[in-house]
């Protein structure tokens, strides 16, 4: 296996007196798709945001391609190859698809903007049809595609996705995951946070299970898919 692109070492994160992450250690290798599954409130979004330094880790270390980024500014992190699509999509409602994509270039500047926009339209043909439509008037699935595409506009080496399936119809979730698979096959390293464990595990090379701010279990996607505990807790016992 290749070297880890991202490594978390014993990360502790607090919201005031409440400890949201407890000694979380994990790693993501270059080119891998890794997912983090867990119930609502387990601390998944917190983990993703603390990679961006919001909130800051109280102790522990975040290494990105060998560099310690634990104390780096969010801007530094965003402009050095980590992008995220936040929970709940968060597209800019009053802006068009094209303008949303342009916003995605803020971390790196718009040198490659038109070229990258073309790539996004190839990856998400739906967005091309809607390029001058305002984001708020689009369906949830389209907004999710836009949020992912916007994140990709900063040419990330590592893409962080927070619950891309949230609130979407099953058929739309399928489409989104098909696109993610395509993206992964093109060599993108993806770290996926999901409650939809079934889809996430099928897509992932490896996965972590988080309970109450701690990593409880880890293994390949296949291993966890057939694991009794995981099936009972996160896959509705199917």
């Amino acid at each position: 296996m290749s070297a880890p692109i991202l490594e978390l070492k014993e990360l502790d994160v607090f919201y005031g007196p409440i400890q949201a992450l407890k000694k979380v250690s994990m790693h993501i290798n270059e080119g891998e798709t890794v997912s983090l599954i867990g119930a609502n409130g387990a601390g998944k979004s917190t983990l993703l945001m603390s990679i961006f330094g919001q909130p800051r880790a109280a102790s522990g270390q975040i290494l990105y391609r060998g560099t310690d980024i634990t104390r780096k500014s969010p801007h530094f992190i965003a402009s050095n190859g980590i992008a995220q699509s936040p929970e709940g999509r968060r597209v800019f409602p009053d802006m068009t698809v094209e303008e949303n994509l342009m916003m995605g270039t803020i971390p790196i500047g718009d040198k490659h903007a038109s070229e990258d926009m073309q790539r996004m339209y190839e990856l998400f043909p739906r967005l091309k049809e809607r390029r001058s439509q305002r984001a708020m008037t689009m369906s949830g699935g389209e907004q999710q595609m836009l949020a992912i595409a916007r994140a990709l506009m900063s040419r990330p080496k590592l893409l962080l996705l927070d619950e891309p399936s949230l609130g979407l119809a099953p058929i739309v979730v399928k489409q989104i995951f098909a696109t993610l698979r395509e993206l992964a096959q093109s060599g993108m390293t993806i770290f996926l946070v999901e409650q939809n464990a079934n889809h996430a595990l099928k897509l992932s090379d490896r996965a972590y299970v988080m309970v109450n701010g701690e990593i409880r279990m880890t293994g390949t996607g296949q291993e966890l898919l057939v694991n009794e505990d995981v099936r009972n807790a996160y896959l509705g016992g199917h």
């Binding site: 961006f52 919001q54 500014s73 969010p74 801007h75 530094f76 992190i77 965003a78 402009s79 992008a83 995220q84 699509s85 936040p86 709940g88 968060r90 597209v91 800019f92 409602p93 009053d94 802006m95 916003m103 995605g104 803020i106 971390p107 994140a151 900063s154």
Partner: peptide, 14 residues
Amino acid sequence: ALREDEIACRSMGL
């Protein structure tokens, strides 16, 4: 961008 969505801005490192 900030007027439209602060969280989205933060997720871009603004």
